[in-house]
Amino acid sequence: MKLRSNSPNETYDLGFTLGSYIEWGLIVCIEGEMGAGKTALSQGIIRGLGVVEKYITSPTYTLVNEYKVRDLSIYHFDVYRVGDYDELSAIGFEEYFNEGSIVVIEWADMIRENLPDNSIWINIERVDHENLREISIKGIEKLKKPLREELRKWEKI
């Protein structure tokens, strides 16, 4: 599925829609160069999941930020600074994946081969105009039909 965003706000809204519909246990892998809008998309997803905490900030420095909705956990990773799966594994990376959590991973392409099958992949690409982004989602069949319908709003015209 190929979608299009005209601004960071639209990227955030797309994320919010995703977050409002996705089911617990899913892993959302985001790839795209620096400034593509990975954090904006993640912030949308996390808000869409129902996180009310005031600040949802970049996890570049902390590696992972954790949020709670009821007793469910949302883990927001940025693996750029690690880049190597063995390093991540050493801090118990796999333990974050379970049925009661959603894991959102920025720079996921750096550890592509090691990520489980129940992942969807979102690639954000810069095109032509400086704020225009092409957003492709792989693994769309893992999303429920109502969400797929909602996402059509962002389909390329």
Partner: peptide, 18 residues
């Protein structure tokens, strides 16, 4: 107040890299 996205030093790091 605090940052809503990137920290100031993080912005310096990222732009320095680019």
């Amino acid at each position: 107040g605090q940052t809503r996205d990137d920290a100031a030093g993080e912005a310096f790091d990222k732009i320095s890299r680019s």
